[in-house]
Design a protein around this nucleic acid. Structure first.
Lengths: 120, 120
DNA sequence: TTGACACATTCCCATATAGGAATATGATCG
DNA sequence: CGATCATATTCCTATATGGGAATGTGTCAA
């Protein structure tokens, strides 16, 4: 089997750098396809393709406005991804925590009993 | 061009469900390849392949222990991904914020001047 | 050394791209 | 209706899978 389809879920959809850039741009508000394509320096068909993927996983919404199609961010689908990653947060703050613990231990030891050589 | 390689970055590496499961399992501590393969119901070669990808993007570390190879989580590489997603956090809390604002407005209006019909 | 065990890699296949070019579809205007 | 602008889709190609099967590599014990 090949890799899972990009349209399968948000994890796959945001694996593509250009799609991430699209999402970032849309944080400022609705944008038409040609505006996105221009801002990101990609062709119009490519922009449409990426937007289709984002639409299929529910990360953007479309709205017709005359000849244009305005895409709007619908970031709710990113929440589960963010939360999944949050489950690992302790692992990158861990080293600091350990350092803190060590500092605490030092403090306690210092104020404890025999206060002979406190440095070295 | 084809899709970006799964080994290109953490975004691509975690696009694969089985690799995400591996990372979750490793939160509990080091595990050997065969243990991972068994726990996730996948073949040993598949486990090795996924672990290789995770190793190449720096999400796990290996350590030889006799005939076994113990894989350990190195979640630091997930931090940038988590932070990127954090940039969208406002968009899924937004609706609640708006609701709060609305409630504030109601409260102010109520306590303001003419206190005629306060409900409807 | 030989055998056994734990992993890693290679080979092969079906599938899914991302990108460029060309074309189709939709909406608006005269 | 016909022309035009804005998008969407299709066709094509090169590439990168993920999975199964087979095989290579490394380590340890007898």
């Amino acid at each position: 089997m090949a890799r899972a389809a990009t349209t399968s879920d948000a994890f796959n959809a945001i694996a593509e750098p250009q799609r991430r850039e699209i999402l970032v741009l849309l944080r400022s508000g609705e944008l038409a396809v040609s505006e996105l394509a221009h801002d990101l320096g990609m062709s119009q068909p490519q922009a449409s393709k990426h937007l289709r993927v984002l639409r299929e996983v529910g990360l953007v919404q479309v709205r017709g406005s005359g000849k244009q199609r305005l895409y709007d961010l619908d970031a709710g689908g990113l929440r589960p991804v963010h939360e999944w990653l949050g489950g690992f947060e302790q692992f990158w703050t861990e080293s600091f925590d350990r350092l803190d613990d060590y500092v605490q231990v030092l403090k306690q030891t210092r104020g404890e009993g025999l206060s002979n050589d406190d440095d070295r």
